[in-house]
Design a protein around this nucleic acid. Sequence first.
DNA 1: ATGCCGGGTCCTACCCGA
Length: 256
Amino acid sequence: MKIATWNVNSIRQRESHVQRWLETNQPDVLFLQEIKCETAAFPALAFHALGYNADVVGQKSYNGVAVLGRKPFTVIHRGLPGLAEDDAQARYIEIEMDGVTMIGIYLPNGNSRGEEGYAYKLAWMDRLADRAQALLDADQDFVITGDFNVCPTDVDFAPGALPSTDALVRPETRDRYRRMLWMGLTDAVRAVHPQGPVYTFWDYQAGAWQRDSGLRIDHALLSPVLAERLVSAGPDRNERDQPQPSDHVPVVTILA
DNA sequence: ATGCCGGGTCCTACCCGA
């Protein structure tokens, strides 16, 4: 089972990249983030032609998530359970495929809109942990993958790439990520690569890619039984060298 | 030291990302 995630920074700008990547890599599931379009504008037919069914949680201009699957799947949630009813940000999609719950997320960045924006990020992380706990309590196998906007440790960002006050590294952010690990979830990329940098994002500016000044912010968390099936997990760095790339690369998790 | 890049949109100056 090959499960991938990719923040594409606009699906309209990256449609051909995703098509090529699907043809080359043939994942069972690909979660997309920052599609930056409304649901009706998502190019579902282009991916259907490659054998993938799509489900989309779109939003005008910002955010937006989707899932592409080449096996039948059922959509369980198109928003994070427990958030306010009027929350309109398209950041969460949950499906079930072959008895496994798969969740794709675009976790709030938390650097805009001051402390109110940061509080929204923390509340979002609290609700995500609640959802994970509910699935653990139900003995349901699951993976949560996507753009977490969290650098879990100081190894997960290049020296100088972020100030210590950034919402990606603030202690309250890391506390909440670590809490999900303490619940029994496995950080798949870190489990496969226990030491050293494994970046998944490089800023467009200041030659960040050329200097390998990156961040590890795209993750896959596995429930305990799925963690025992972990074969490999890591970023596809080749994609950052393509013309007009996203600033994130795909992260691929393979389960036996 | 963030807004140098690169998306978005009230089409063009401004918001947002990490």
